[in-house]
Amino acid sequence: MISMLALVTLPSVLVLLVGLALVLARRRRLRSLTWLVAGALVMLLVAQVGSTAYLGYLFHMAFSMDTDGLIALSAWGDAIGTTVQRLDIAGLLLLVIAVFMGRRPVSADRADAESDLPSVGDSLSGGTR
């Protein structure tokens, strides 16, 4: 059962590790966003591994019939669950912030030049502006 839980978690952990490796490999191009994205990916990775480790240990306690340990561990369940959820939310929020921080505003000259281009609707109707 524990090996199945680890097997289910493995793809998401691999995706996070590959993402972290790509971010660190491209840190010169990403500049200041590198550490924000790396921190977000590490938060998501810790949340995923922590959640899996807690559930694995909980299953181990349940199958070994250690009721005292199971009661003590389940008392920590709310705290561990809340911490994992907060890490997930914080990691995703940091990723969203990094995406929007990487965008540069369009300058007024460039926006005017793009508005002079004919649109798809104009070419289909055969009309001009």
Rank of each mutant, 00 (worst) to 15 (best):
L14E: 13
L41C: 07
T34L: 09
D116E: 15
R104G: 03
V18N: 08
S32C: 04
L70C: 06
F100A: 09
R29G: 12
I80E: 06
Y57G: 06
L30H: 04
T34K: 02
L33G: 05
M65H: 12
D66R: 08
Q85S: 14
L22M: 10
T52V: 11
G39H: 07
S64Q: 15
A6F: 04
G19I: 03
D68R: 11
D68L: 15
G102I: 09
M101W: 11
A40V: 05
L33V: 05
G77M: 12
G81K: 07
V96I: 15
T67A: 14
S107Q: 02
I89E: 00
A21R: 07
A113K: 00
L94R: 08
Y57R: 08
G19K: 00
G121L: 13
M43G: 01
M65I: 12
V18A: 14
V84T: 11
L30Q: 04
G50M: 04
D122T: 14
A53I: 07
L45P: 01
F63H: 13
L41N: 03
Y54L: 11
L93R: 01
M101P: 01
G121W: 10
A6P: 01
M61G: 03
A47K: 05
V23M: 07
A40T: 03
L7G: 10
A62K: 02
L44R: 00
P11M: 11
L55E: 06
